[in-house]
Design a protein around this nucleic acid. Structure first.
Lengths: 229, 229
DNA sequence: CGTCATTTTGATGGAGGTCAATGAACGTGG
DNA sequence: CCACGTTCATTGACCTCCATCAAAATGACG
């Protein structure tokens, strides 16, 4: 339907910090895996080998409560890292499923190894990943605050920032997530999310066609994200 | 006001997994610290040395957003461990303040140390702590779901479970947290929390005096916690 | 006893959840 | 190529729940 599509979502360029580790001395390696839409990377409780990095596509992390209802905990996109729980030799915290065709790399640093009396060896990369994961959980909580509009705006701002970090356009992107998943992630109903989109569109803060989103007024978007209606 | 107080909140017995590590070979040690009510253990962004364990009392972890509003991220009680971020040599994620006179132990495993080419030494205890922290963030998110009653019920059920793990009464305890903090933690207004308490009391699911809570109908409490009004 | 903080209770309005209907996009088989 | 079913996004109408404002009640402390 669009005239011609602009390349606003690029695969991961795979630059500095990660690849540079794969040198002599450490047995770091990577194994690629492609998941079709709807395919699971692993389920909650599964024992997993180690962290994965998202190369292309998108995935969601979710948990199912006792009533069978699904709670979206995380949304992963290009460049995100997930699955650190594997290092603790315990079951995965959340289930991970591809919401779009996705390619991931397993980072096969074999997790902790014995490193002395009562000590385990672990790379600094992994440790940083843990830290990022903890910070992220704070962000996710923040998403579940304020009005529906504020939540959506906050998400879009964050997502734009991530886009920038990936070297992509900050104000224009294709959302790889469906409305239902996004709504669950934000802790609101899908219909409410739809209305929030409509409201932002009516205020000329963004325009959109399907999942192709263009932010017209970033300043206003940030203002709304901070709760100042 | 109570006739005579039952010892329902005991200090940590300091049993198996933690103390048993402090043997020859590792330089593990503990440093006690007592905080008055309102005193901070550390602030968000501070560089901290390592994890702490709560021996007695209670603390809250919170973040302040740009509007100056406070968001309660965690509530810590006897036996809980916090401050794992220190290991990554980065600033603390949240600020920690005592909501009641509290005693904590700093676990002075000196954080990561060199353990080989590109490797860092870390104890299994720490790794497990990270894992627990990640699982906890899932729980915290779950707290921000459903009706006010369901949130409160869920909190009480979880708190009772923790009490049991500490070897204390599961159905009777003294809440060390004020209403305001608890409400913020649950993502509801203090007044709504008060009403939720009142509602549970009226249904004879619990009785309470101040912060002394007795669960009369645990089964019903769990039912409500799962959203079945 | 007065002052202050905290909790409880009451009254009101609005945001958003729910149910329902419509519309758009896509695939499948005739 | 079209008819049909399916899935998903949008829009409308209704009504519940909770945030907010306000005030009274309770307790802590000097």
């Amino acid at each position: 339907m669009h005239g011609h599509v602009i390349p606003i979502n690029t695969p991961l360029p795979l630059s500095s910090p990660i690849r540079s580790r794969g040198t002599a001395g450490t047995q770091t390696g990577y194994t690629g895996r492609v998941l079709a839409k709807g395919e699971h990377l692993y389920h909650a409780g599964d024992s997993i080998a180690g962290p994965y990095m998202v190369i292309t596509g998108a995935l969601k992390g979710y948990n199912t409560d006792e009533d069978g209802f699904e709670r979206v905990m995380r949304l992963y996109s290009t460049g995100d890292v997930l699955g650190f729980e594997g290092l603790a030799r315990r079951g995965a915290v959340s289930s991970i499923v591809a919401v779009d065709t996705a390619k991931v790399w397993k980072m096969t640093e074999q997790g902790p190894v014995e490193g002395g009396p009562g000590m385990l060896g672990i790379t600094e990369t992994i440790l940083m990943g843990f830290y990022r994961e903890l910070s992220l959980s704070a962000q996710v909580l923040e998403m579940n605050r304020g009005s529906a509009q504020a939540r959506l705006a906050r998400f879009l701002v964050h997502y734009g920032d991530q886009q920038a970090q990936r070297g992509c356009k900050e104000q224009e992107f294709l959302l790889p997530f469906g409305r239902r998943d996004l709504a669950h992630y934000l802790g609101i109903a899908a219909e409410t999310l739809s209305r929030a989109f409509g409201s932002l569109r009516k205020k000329h803060i963004l325009k959109m066609n399907e999942n192709h989103i263009v932010v017209l007024d970033p300043a206003d978007l940030r203002r709304i994200a901070n709760g100042n209606a």
